[in-house]
Each structure stands twice: as C-alpha cells, then as structure tokens.
C-alpha cells in the first residue's frame, strides 16, 4: 500500500555472503519519504552490496527490501517504476551516444516520444553532455559516465533516487549542478539516498545518515543525532575505528 507515510526505502535483515565472506549482515535501513539520506562507510563496508540488494539488482540471501511499501523482490515491476538508480561502475549500452541512450531507455519505459525527446535534450544540456553529441558512451570519461548514469536515473521522474557514489570523478562545476538538481528534487517531495566517502559532502547535503562498517549498520538516524556534538568525520572515525600505524610507517618515503 503506497502512501506518502510509507518510508521511501525500508530494508530489514538484508544479508549477503560471497562464499565464506559475509559482505552484508542483517542490514536494516529506513529512509523516510522526503529525506536526503547519506550512506557512509569505509571501503569494502558493504554499501554497494546493500544498495544493489535494496533496488533489485542483487538477490539477498535473507531479508526484505521495500520501496514505498512495495516489496522489491515480489512486486519488482511496480517497485522499479518508483525508483531511479545509479549503480557504481556498471556498463551501459556502450555503442550509443548519450542522447541515444536516453531516447532508447525512455522509449523502452513506454514514455511518449515527445516527452522522451524533450527530457533527453534538457538532461543533456543541464549536465553539460550535449557538447559531446557524437561520442559513444564507450568513449566517455569516468566523470561523463557518472553524469549519463545520473541522467538515466532521472529520466522517468522517479520518486526515489538511489545513487552509488554520484560525485566520484565528477568535476567541481558538474558536482555543484548535481547538488542543485538533487536538492530541488528533495524540495519537490522526492527522496534521495546516496553513498559516499566524502563526509563534508554528506554533512552538507543530507538530513539523515547511516554508517556501515564490516557489513553492519554501526549507527543510523537524523544527521544531528548520529554526529552528536562533533563533526560527522569524528563520529565516523569513532564508530569505524581509527588506525594509528600510518603515523609511524613509510619512513623510507621521507628519508
């Protein structure tokens, strides 16, 4: 039953093991509707795996994921029409130009041709991809790939955006544009969940945050609650545990 009161995304008891390695263990997250949610954690903490299971790209060993109350793994078609996704590092239809990718995916989703053409043009120009009109996606730089991925996620005007490292490798000007787009999206009633390593960025953008470490949720809730009195970075290091040996090692570098 989807109502505005349902959380935009709720996962309960998500678990995934690759062989003997448990990547995600009993992860429960609640992303309130209308929130800007940050997911932070060290490398290999299980952020990408969690997000992939939450949107239906990786089948969990156990647990559930719901988007606005719709079960992702039971009513996939309905859930997928509500969400726009930017996964980290996946391939695209590599031999299409940016405009062709957007046109193709819009048509495949059944949007009217006029709407597709209009939205594709606007997304390309806002994200400054229209200057590379002739380049195929396979020839794009890493930052351009992020931007076309974001355009794909926005194309069908979803109610929830799930973005894995959306600012990685993106130049500062484009990053500012993306921040503006996402803020406007949330102001307009949309919900966003992003994963990131950059604490300052999460602090600046998000109103809710979850810290994942070693495949488990170390802390989650409104930003002010999680960071307490200090900065998010301090809270993060405290939760995840700092490593001191760097201060002593690598002596040969300075000798």
């Amino acid at each position: 039953m989807r109502t505005q009161r349902q959380p935009a995304l709720r996962t309960t008891g998500l678990r995934k093991a690759f062989g003997d390695h448990v990547a995600v263990d009993d992860v429960g997250l609640t992303v309130p509707a209308g929130s800007f949610y940050g997911l932070v954690g060290p490398n290999g903490a299980g952020k990408t795996t969690t997000l992939a299971m939450a949107v239906g790209l990786l089948r969990p060993d156990a647990g559930r994921a719901e988007i606005f109350g719709v079960d992702v793994w039971r009513s996939g078609v309905e859930a997928k029409s509500l969400v726009g996704v930017l996964p980290d590092g996946n391939a695209m239809p590599e031999r299409l130009t940016g405009r062709e990718v957007l046109t193709y995916l819009g048509l495949l989703r059944g949007l009217p041709p006029g709407v597709v053409a209009e939205r594709a043009a606007e997304l390309l120009s806002v994200l400054e991809l229209d200057s590379a009109e002739r380049a195929l996606v396979i020839e794009y730089s890493t930052g351009m790939r992020k931007k076309i991925g974001l355009a794909v996620a926005l194309l069908h005007a979803p109610r929830l955006l799930v973005l894995d490292e959306p600012f990685e490798a993106v130049d500062p000007v484009s990053a500012a544009t993306i921040r503006t787009i996402l803020r406007r999206f949330v102001t307009g009633g949309g919900s966003v969940i992003i994963s990131s390593h950059v604490m300052a960025l999460v602090e600046q953008l998000c109103d809710h945050v979850a810290v994942i470490s070693g495949g488990r949720v170390a802390a989650a809730g409104p930003l002010a609650e999680v960071r307490g009195g200090g900065s998010l970075e301090e809270a993060f290091i405290e939760l995840v545990g700092a490593r001191a040996e760097v201060r002593e090692g690598l002596a040969w570098l300075t000798s």
Partner: peptide, 12 residues
Amino acid sequence: DGTALWLTLMTP
C-alpha cells in the same frame, strides 16, 4: 555486453 544488463533489469 557485460553489466549493461542492469538497465534491462531496472526497466519494468
């Protein structure tokens, strides 16, 4: 085509 399959999976 590699992991481009994700787009097919995410399009209802």
